[in-house]
Every structure is written in C-alpha cells, then in structure tokens.
Write a protein that binds this DNA or RNA. Structure first.
Length: 197
DNA sequence: GGTAGGATTACCT
DNA sequence: GGTAATCCTACCC
C-alpha cells in the first residue's frame, strides 16, 4: 500500500492536545485515491472537538453510541458523518483509545489531480460538504485508518512557514451554549478556499 | 418501529 | 436573505 516518507505517523494523532493537533494539521496534505488516481488537497481549515467536556462534540460527556464509537478509537482513524442528509463531514480521530477527540476538516485547497469535475463553478462558498464531494469522501471511508492501509491518508507538509493562522469560534454549534464560544476553529488567513472569513 | 433533528448548501425571490 | 432539499442517527414509545 502506501509507502510514503511523508505519511504522518500514528504518534501524531495519539497526542492528548486535540486543539494543538487541529492547528498543526493546517497546511498538511489530505490524499484520497479513487480508481488508482490520487487526489491531493492542502488542509486550510480545521475545528477541534473534544469528547470529554465539549458539548459541541457528538460524543460529549462520555456519550457513547454506535455512531460515535469510532471517536473512542485510537487516533488516526477517519470519522465520516452525514449531516443534513446531504453532506459528508470528514473528521480525524485523535488521542488514545477511550478518548473521544476529533478534528473536523472543513476545507482544503486543491493540489494535484483533476478537480474540474468535482467543484461546481459557483464559488460562493466552500465548506465541508464540498470538500467531501471533491475528495470523494463517503460513508465508505468511515472508520478507515489514515496511516497508509487505505485509500485515504494525510501527508506531512512542513513548509508553511510564514503562513498566518487565525483562530475563531466554530461554525454551526450555537446549540452548545458556552462551549460555542471556544476559539477552536483554525484556518489559514487570506485563503480563498476557507469557507467563511 | 416510528419520528425528530442536525458540525450545510443551493436556489429562489 | 430566506428556505427547501434529504437521509442517517438517536431516542422514545
């Protein structure tokens, strides 16, 4: 399978600080493979979700269901969630087994591969829904490991020096009360692919 | 077994 | 700027 020197090691995902991981994922490369062709995108927008005490997280307060089960897995898994019946949202599970932390990947900037048939001409917005469509992410990817055994993985990209990273509140989590105010959304400043500025 | 709701987007007025 | 589309998950009988 993937034998790639840039592949992020499992230890990257196993750390305890999901907010830090969300920040570090910015600028790294998300890769999916379909029909043998790799499609690469630079991660430009992420959000951190913490299982332990974050009401915005599906697995908040120790809630454990068949859907959220994957979030309790060892870091390095994909958690794909269908929102509003239409949009697939892609998360990266982090932390050790038993801790339901995850990083939501909200936007990527297209790199290699042919994206012409994946992005409609409308440039009004970019968000997790379009990201999943563009990368071909579906429920099939749910629970897939990102460490090289499957058709989706993340590569290191250390050369984002000088890039401005902005922290802000997360999107669409108003229901989470005071936790909605946490500055756990990170994006790359002045990037056209960020969903919201 | 049935129903309410959601980490959104596109299209209409 | 408002709202329809759309379907899986969770929770309550």
């Amino acid at each position: 399978m993937t034998n790639n020197d840039f592949l992020l090691p499992k230890s990257f995902y196993l750390r305890d600080d999901v907010v830090q991981i969300a920040k570090e994922l910015l600028g790294k490369t998300l890769v999916t493979r379909q029909n043998g062709a790799a499609r690469k995108g630079k991660i430009v927008e992420t959000e951190a979700y913490r299982g332990y005490d974050d009401k915005a997280c599906h697995a908040s307060n120790g809630k454990r269901t068949p859907r959220t089960e994957v979030m309790y897995r060892e870091g390095g898994c994909a958690y794909v969630y269908l929102c509003y019946g239409i949009h697939h949202l892609f998360n990266v599970v982090t932390n050790v087994a038993g801790k339901a932390d995850a990083v939501l990947i909200r936007a990527v900037e297209p790199l290699d591969g042919d994206w012409s048939d994946r992005h409609p001409k409308t440039k009004t917005s970019n968000g997790p829904g379009k990201l999943s469509k563009a990368m071909g992410i579906t429920m099939e990817m749910n629970t897939a490991r990102l460490t090289g055994e499957n058709d989706i993985w993340i590569e290191d990209a250390p050369d984002i020096v000088g890039t401005s990273i902005v922290a802000s509140t997360r999107v669409g989590v108003d229901y989470a009360g005071e936790d909605a105010l946490l500055p756990w959304r990170f994006y790359i400043c002045n990037n056209d692919w960020v969903s919201k500025k």
